[in-house]
Write a protein that binds this DNA or RNA. Structure first.
Lengths: 104, 104
DNA sequence: ATAATACATGAGTATCTGTTCAGGCGTTAT
DNA sequence: ATAACGCCTGAACAGATACTCATGTATTAT
């Protein structure tokens, strides 16, 4: 039985691009604050804007991106639109980053 | 007795900025490929450049950033400089992102 | 010493990103 | 119907980012 040294190639460009895209969702201060809010509870746009102190428009733009990536989902109730994080794994990934930063 | 609605604040700006910075390290296709290579084994700059098909200069620039963030560390052996990922938690975080992308 | 190799660095540049602003759309109140 | 409210959207712009190119710095070979 021959023991060949497994030469693992790096990630192909396509996969790497997707991974980068995922992490890019967490790579902006405002979005991190958005997601930290949403990680606690479903929240509407206006409240999010207040919490993180950017305009509703800016919040909307960020949420659109996150929505298009399938990371958050919207639910309308009356005039307000509530957002929440879709995937539990995403939440875990995000929180792990937060934890890492906190302990050092 | 008044029932006040507990308003969990979002992450403060300072912490959020650090979290964003961490994730930003993984938010570029080339860096993802770099890190995926390094996640398998310590590698020198030239080899990395070959593997991910960008110039040595570009690799150097990326590695400088990662080094300054304390995510990778350099070790010189002769003319070559080998890089590796410093922290196991960082590695885990990165790999979790990769896994998430792969299964969908 | 001189040249060659491997990598680092700064400047310059094209592209990307986050924000604001102005206006639009859907829902509710009057 | 009309106004008010909450949110969305596209354009425009400032700042950030990733790359190339030219050059610089260690280290090794001749």
């Amino acid at each position: 039985m021959t023991v060949t040294k497994q030469l693992h190639p790096a990630l192909d460009e396509h996969t790497a691009a997707h991974v980068a895209e995922l992490f890019r969702a967490f790579s902006d201060t405002s979005r991190v604050r958005l997601l930290s809010a949403l990680s606690r509870q479903e929240t509407n746009v206006g409240t999010l804007a207040e919490m993180i102190e950017i305009s509703e428009s800016a919040v909307s733009h960020h949420l659109r991106g996150l929505r298009q990536m399938g990371l958050v989902i919207a639910r309308r109730r009356g005039k307000e639109v509530f957002y929440r994080i879709v995937d539990k794994h995403i939440l875990t990934l995000f929180e792990q980053g937060v934890r890492h930063v906190r302990q050092e």
